[in-house]
Simulated assay, not measured.
Amino acid sequence: MALDVVIRPARAADEHEILELHRSTWSRVSEPGPKRPPDAALFDERHPVEGFLVAEHGRGVVGYIAHAPASPLASNRHVRHIQGLAVLDAARGSGIGQALVEAACAAARAGGARRMTLRVLGHNGPAQRLYRRCGFAVVGVLPEEFLLDGAYVDDVWMSRSLSDRDGAAHP
């Protein structure tokens, strides 16, 4: 990762930059839902600012990751779920995505979580490779779960243990 990139907790003031980053990186390769309108709110009850980490370069946000409890159930409190990840196109390939995933896993572990889960579209090979490098494994596939631009796309579920990791990068 570039030495001048800092991973930090998001602040309410980052909302506009994170939304712009999300809109600029949105594609059917990574998103089954519609593109967010420019005036959409990002932080809300389901997506509190405390669940976001950002990668900052200089004075600008070049990446973000969002994670939250996997469900509202107390019996499931030990599991966190990655809700979104984006890196500015110009910053891709520099290790920022992996640093964000590892930072989210470390924050979840520090909060008492034992497992991190996520969902990724079956045709998003680059994201699946990133998650595998970070220690995630496929735990299930919902075949043809989404119809995107006339093609059926699998919903791939991935998971990683947090209880046996030391926070180091994974091969």
Rank of each mutant, 00 (worst) to 15 (best):
S30D: 06
D44G: 15
H67T: 05
A41P: 00
A55R: 02
R36Y: 11
S94E: 12
A104N: 09
L85F: 02
Q98W: 01
S30I: 08
R109E: 00
V62W: 08
K35Q: 15
A104D: 07
R109Y: 06
G51P: 11
R59D: 07
G33D: 14
R109H: 10
F43T: 08
A113Y: 04
D44K: 10
A104G: 09
L53W: 02
P72H: 09
S30Y: 05
P69R: 14
A113F: 09
V54P: 03
C105M: 12
V62I: 12
A70F: 12
Q83V: 12
E45P: 02
A55F: 01
V62H: 05
E56M: 13
A66F: 07
L53G: 03
A113S: 15
S94R: 15
A113N: 07
G111N: 10
L100I: 00
P48A: 05
P37K: 09
A106S: 15
R46F: 04
V61G: 00
S30Q: 14
A99Q: 04
A107N: 09
G60A: 14
V62F: 04
R80H: 13
E102V: 10
I96M: 07
E31W: 14
A55Q: 03
L100A: 04
P32I: 04
C105L: 02
G112E: 11
N76H: 14
G93E: 00
S94K: 13
E31H: 14
R77K: 12
R46L: 11
P34L: 09
D44T: 08
A55T: 02
P38I: 07
H81S: 11
I96Q: 04
N76S: 14
L100K: 01
L100E: 06
V49C: 15
P72F: 08
Y64F: 15
A66C: 12
Q83Y: 10
L85K: 01
A91S: 14
G58Y: 02
G84A: 12
I82R: 10
V61F: 00
H47D: 06
H81Y: 09
P34E: 15
A108Q: 03
P48N: 11
